[in-house]
């Protein structure tokens, strides 16, 4: 962390500490290039929104950060991504350890077809985090509380996670992700499959989580980006067009394409 932290009281002028530094990222699916020299700095303990029209590469970029793109045989990533000061594409990096530090929440709620308790406990078990049964139960409870789900499910922890409503399932997935105490949480359109009330709950939750986690969220909804994020990056046709504080992007975009997208002329 080389960036100096300003001691200024005014948050608007504070220079945030950077946790993810992506430099010159090119991504190819076979012969097709999906991202063109994307460089982006993600500040710590802030919500960064990735916006842009469909197929612009924002989810591709998100999946580079926890190397979920590795699962696609034909996908090739060039460039460097530093998390803290470590290059996550270095040959010695273990993706399993990486993903334990960078959690992910997906577009469609995808709880395991197991009990609510086991859904949250799974990560703790495989990473051998809890040493005793009581510790396991405590951590499950605190994760569910952090995900604002505890009050709704505390009497039915043994019921399948799939029996919850869509919004509850998504909060369960968030609880599952934060149970193993990652530094960063990636969210891929976490509210796109939910109704407005459930969406509002998720957004509220994201705002709370930013105290302890760095959040990078892909969203289609510009209103959502404006509501939850402090920083916004606008992607278009595989390029990072513009990125900066959410307020300035939405009020005074530098690029014409950003302007057009925000005003609804493209996308």
């Amino acid at each position: 962390m080389t960036l100096a932290v300003s001691t200024s009281v005014e948050p608007e002028t504070q220079i945030d500490q950077v946790i993810v530094k992506a430099s010159d990222i090119n991504v190819f699916y076979g012969d097709k290039q999906a991202l063109y020299t994307v460089s982006l700095h993600v500040p710590q303990n802030k919500v960064t929104a990735l916006i842009g029209p469909s197929g612009c590469g924002k989810t591709t970029f998100l999946k580079c950060i926890n190397r979920m793109n590795d699962l696609i045989d034909i996908c090739r990533v060039e460039g460097e991504i530093l998390v803290g000061d470590q290059d996550i594409y270095a040959p010695a990096v273990d993706v399993v350890a990486l993903r334990a530090h960078i959690g992910m929440v997906f577009q469609k709620p995808n709880p395991f077809p197991k009990s609510i308790f086991d859904n949250v406990a799974y990560g703790l078990r495989i990473h051998n985090i809890a040493t005793s049964k009581t510790e396991l139960a405590d951590r499950v409870e605190s994760s569910l509380r952090s995900a604002a789900l505890w009050e709704e499910v505390k009497d039915r922890l043994d019921q399948p996670g799939t029996s919850l409503s869509g919004g509850q399932q998504q909060r369960l997935c968030i609880a599952r992700a934060i149970a193993i105490q990652p530094k960063i949480i990636l969210m891929d359109e976490p509210a796109s499959a939910l109704d407005p009330i459930a969406t509002a709950k998720i957004e509220e939750l994201i705002d709370d989580l930013r105290q302890n986690y760095t959040i990078i969220i892909v969203t289609h909804s510009m209103q959502q980006a404006a509501r939850v994020s402090q920083y916004t990056a606008f992607f278009h046709m595989g390029e990072l067009v513009e990125h900066g504080k959410t307020k300035s992007i939405f009020t005074a975009p530098n690029d014409e394409r950003t302007q057009n997208y925000i005003t609804g002329r493209i996308g």
């Binding site: 399993v96 995808n110 395991f112 077809p113 799974y122 495989i126 997935c173």
Partner: peptide, 19 residues
């Protein structure tokens, strides 16, 4: 989505398959 969920939380491929 089940595979992504398991891998996203840091399961190995073998854990993903057998769990």
């Amino acid at each position: 989505s089940i595979r992504e969920a398991a891998l996203g939380i840091g399961a190995t491929r073998t854990q993903m398959v057998f769990h």
